[in-house]
Simulated assay, not measured.
Amino acid sequence: MNMEYVQTVLVQIPAAKLDAALKPDGLLGELETHRSIASTRSGFRGMRVTRSANPEGDALVVVETRWASNNELADYSTQEPNVASIAAAHRDEVVPNSLQVHRMQAPGAGGASSADAARVYDRLALALFVPIGVLAFALLVIYGLSRIYLALPSSAATPLAAGIALGVLGIAAYFATHPTVPRWQIVGVFVVVLGTLAIGGTAAAVYDEGHHTVKQPEAAASPPAGATPGGAPSGNAIQITAKNIKFDKTTLTAAAGDVTIQFNNADNAIPHNFAVYKSDSGPTDEIKHTDIAAGPVVQTLQLTLEKGTYFFDCQVHPAQMSGKLIVE
């Protein structure tokens, strides 16, 4: 059966105020004007204004608006102007405390209407567009959060995650305690979330672009006479690469004095650094380290070392990435 959702507004007008209410700027005049405004609202099916014919006593005015769905009636009820707000604005023309608002469900007119066809179309469209929309929303959330988390220092990641969790719980609690939520509020939540993620993700991407510059490899020069092609860099320089969360070498050798270590983080979007220690006892014996940065990125560490055995690691992944530096 085709059902309609009806809002019925009742109000009494004193006989002495009836002429004023019938004027174009009076209550009844504005209700007639409102009919054309209401007809532009989604789901509107009709409006009827009736009043009692008693010329001597108070006139009872009954205004019915009919809607295709309960949500569309809820949207109309929460957005002004509506019949109830118009009646409240003309309180000087009505009997005090006579305004009543009722909502009910009733059988609609027989036969299929354009509103019914629109509802069928909406249901078919939802079956296609809702999954696509949910997937697109999830991808945007994942991308935006990933860019933001990569740009944040590790100390800020936990507070951000806690804030997001509290926000999700707050929104869920609001919707759970409001069974009928106007459509504009739902759309507003999605717009705010997507806008925040878009701004945060864009800012994080710009930050990464400016701070994690990838150095392009220089063209290999022809080795001088007597040099071995493919050997270690000339002078007291060392190269080491991080790939798949491990170093490509676990033992490095250098001559005493000024030492240059070129650290290449080849792990895409994974943060690493290179730290050197006097012993294997940990951070208390640290000599120097590079900044923690997500790859791909190339960094250089300048040291002055005496003969002896030193130790190195990645301070982000010390258990998987460590080794010895022997200075002769």
Rank of each mutant, 00 (worst) to 15 (best):
residue 32 E to S: 13
residue 19 D to K: 07
residue 322 S to K: 15
residue 148 I to E: 11
residue 261 I to F: 01
residue 96 P to M: 12
residue 165 A to Q: 11
residue 14 P to D: 11
residue 117 A to S: 03
residue 182 P to S: 06
residue 272 H to V: 07
residue 136 A to F: 08
residue 101 V to G: 03
residue 188 G to W: 06
residue 234 S to C: 01
residue 42 S to R: 10
residue 71 N to D: 14
residue 101 V to S: 02
residue 138 A to K: 10
residue 29 G to T: 09
residue 123 R to G: 01
residue 51 R to F: 04
residue 118 A to C: 03
residue 22 L to E: 15
residue 290 T to W: 00
residue 179 P to K: 05
residue 40 T to C: 01
residue 145 L to N: 14
residue 95 V to C: 06
residue 178 H to M: 03
residue 159 P to C: 08
residue 2 N to G: 12
residue 137 F to L: 14
residue 135 L to T: 10
residue 311 F to C: 08
residue 180 T to V: 10
residue 93 E to A: 08
residue 86 I to R: 05
residue 252 L to D: 09
residue 234 S to E: 13
residue 280 D to A: 15
residue 231 G to W: 00
residue 82 N to T: 11
residue 105 Q to F: 04
residue 1 M to A: 09
residue 176 A to H: 10
residue 324 K to P: 01
residue 1 M to T: 11
residue 59 A to Y: 00
residue 252 L to N: 07
residue 239 Q to D: 14
residue 116 D to R: 03
residue 328 E to L: 13
residue 306 E to G: 15
residue 14 P to F: 01
residue 157 A to M: 11
residue 77 S to E: 13
residue 163 G to R: 12
residue 289 H to C: 09
residue 279 S to T: 15
residue 131 P to A: 02
residue 213 T to V: 15
residue 202 T to W: 11
residue 300 T to S: 09
